[in-house]
Amino acid sequence: MNAPCFKASDYKSDINPIWCPGCGDFHVLMSITKALAKLGRPPEQIAVISGIGCSSRIPAYTNCYGFHGVHGRSLAVAAGLKVARPDLTVLAMSGDGDGFSIGGNHFLHACRRNVDMTYIVMDNRVYGMTKGQPSPTTEPDWDSALSPGGTGLSPFHPLVIALASGANFVAREFSGDIKACTETIVQAINHPGFSFVEILSPCVTFRPDEREWKNQVHLASVPETDDPARAARRIMTDDGMNTGILYRGRRKPYFASVSDEEGDISALEAAFEI
């Protein structure tokens, strides 16, 4: 018997995204559905988990199982789900605010814990949903009503943090390059352990300057590596616009053995008898 064949559209729901026309997140959605079709797993065996933000609206736009949780906690929901249900393919989704600011601590520990799932952050270097405040990846001089004249703070470097914290797969892509995004997402899902993909996804409304990204991104000149030291060297010269897979590690994924059997608790009860 042939395995059933899936098209990208099988992974799309009938709900219309609320995103602004031209928002990079449309392309991310497209890449994810294409990647899932390539992988060929039925939609009901895939769970897409997110937090809060424009980008985090994505689960309902898929035809997979979805969880649209609270701001910043997509990784925790996803880890709980994957440990409890190792049979599922689990994608955690965030924006740069969701994933690196309010959810920053979970990012460190998800990399370290190395649960076998894929984390995709749609980085637009702004809080889109709340209408244009600087995020941890925003440039220090970016002017906004909340931080007039800019924050003066140097941006957070997600790939460096991921690598240093133990992520098992680290990559960056640009949403406009659907082909590359699709392929990297396939690779990330297939790689055991915690895979992190930062996708530069322009917010055309609050960061119209990001329309220029399509001219600024470039394929990294150095090939991917499984050596964290080499990856670290390359990443220190990263201009934030390098795309491609940076690191593919060999750490053992988090393991917990769970079973569908009911389990017998009589021995546990007997332990309290005197």
């Binding site: 906690r73 925790a76 929901v77 440990v83 979970h106 460190l108 917990a256 059997e261 017998d264």
Partner: peptide
């Protein structure tokens, strides 16, 4: 011992959301 699992979380924000995820998973 009964085929379940406990995960040590990084904080309570994580622990509550982990159990939400696991419960969503059935």
């Amino acid at each position: 011992s009964v085929g379940g699992a406990l995960v040590q979380a990084e904080d309570e924000l994580a622990s509550i959301n982990m159990i939400i995820g696991a419960s969503f998973g059935g």
